[in-house]
């Protein structure tokens, strides 16, 4: 049987809030609250959700850029959460991240050559500085930049080009998995398409696996093979792309898909408009976290946390409607 490249089990990342005077107990923000999924080699798993749902925290927890509170992360069968710093660094040459804001993630005082060269040197790729320079030039070519850019500073590039540099840095160490955290949301649409195509090309030529985190459902749909929909620290639905869009099961997924404006002015779709806002993760609602905005809400939703239900192989949903113990309530 195929072993998954990455397998995440019951991952939880909690942040303690500041201690308030006279208040004995520290509150915790459950940014990621029990997440399970697997990523197979060569596939793209899209993670979609609204701001504050914990999708970025999840991405960073997998790389241990933020230490997870609980749970297990296995990369190629090896447990990541218990690694020491030295082994962790080795592992990071296999798992890389591309950030949203290419303005903030590149050191403004370093040339492109030294930014990429540093990545190579840290992971002992290339023996001499000359050899590394050659590699940097090759990398720039791979991401659609030219070798003359090697002496330039980040501010001399446009947003799209900077994101190319960010991608070059990620692929410099020959990773197997790249976590892309909102890589195109700061870019104009015409440039966004260039970067999405670059991701696709690199996946094919380098055999990469992606976890693609974004809030834009159309972008996630375009790049992903499977999609996980997050709401308040949980994956509420996990499914292959086609099924998710043809037959969304979770009420939140249904609302999310229907809320995306279409490009066809003639299409008049029945829009589900959710009332209210996303609740704060510091005081999530009882029972099912989505019950405050759900149109099918029943008593059980307010009191009991939903379980993860396997509807069909590879298709998970976190909702009482699909739970054989509770579905009678919804009839």
């Amino acid at each position: 049987m195929n072993q998954p490249l990455l397998s995440v089990k019951d991952l939880k990342t909690y942040f303690p809030t500041k201690k308030i005077f006279f208040n004995k107990e520290r509150q915790v923000i459950k940014a990621v609250d029990g997440i399970n999924f697997q990523v197979n080699k060569g596939e793209t798993l899209g993670i979609v959700g609204e701001s504050g749902c914990g999708k970025s925290t999840m991405g960073r927890s997998i790389l241990r850029l933020i230490e997870p509170t609980e749970g297990s992360i296995k990369f190629e069968g090896k447990e990541v959460t218990t690694l020491n710093q030295k082994d962790l660094r080795k592992l990071r040459s296999n798992m890389q991240i591309v950030f949203q804001d290419p303005f903030a993630s590149l050191n403004p005082k370093m040339t492109v050559g030294s930014i990429l060269g540093e990545a190579l040197a840290t992971h002992q790729l290339g023996q001499s500085s000359k050899e590394r320079k050659e590699k940097v030039k090759e990398l720039l070519g791979k991401v659609g930049l030219s070798p003359i850019h090697i002496e330039r500073y980040p501010h001399e590039f446009s947003g799209g080009q900077r994101q190319r540099i960010g991608i070059a840095r990620a692929i410099a160490v020959n990773p197997a998995l790249i976590i892309a955290d909102e890589p195109v949301s700061a870019l104009d649409v015409s440039v966004q398409a260039q970067i999405l195509n670059l991701f696709q090309d690199l996946k094919e030529t380098l055999g990469l696996t992606y976890i693609f985190i974004a809030h834009d459902l159309s972008v996630v749909k375009h790049v992903s093979d499977r999609i996980g929909v997050m709401y308040l620290g949980k994956i509420v639905e996990l499914s292959d792309k086609k099924q998710l869009f043809q037959n969304p099961l979770h009420p939140y997924t249904q609302a999310l898909i229907s809320a995306v404006p279409t490009l066809d002015p003639d299409a008049k779709k029945d829009r589900i408009i959710l009332s209210g806002d996303v609740p704060s993760p510091s005081s999530p609602p009882s029972g099912c976290a989505f019950h405050t905005r759900c149109m099918y809400r029943k008593n059980v939703c307010e009191n009991v946390k939903p379980r993860e239900i396997t509807v069909s192989p590879g298709r998970l949903v976190n909702c009482h409607m699909y739970d054989e113990d509770y579905f009678v309530e919804f009839l």
């Binding site: 649409v189 398409a193 696709q200 869009f245 066809d264």
Partner: peptide, 25 residues
């Protein structure tokens, strides 16, 4: 035309590549 081609359309079943506008603004 370029703008419309470069946006992934949520309704389309087309899985192919996007057609971006080359270069920058």
């Amino acid at each position: 035309i370029g703008l419309l081609n470069s946006v992934p359309n949520i309704d389309s079943e087309n899985e192919g590549r996007l057609i971006p506008i080359e270069g920058n603004v």
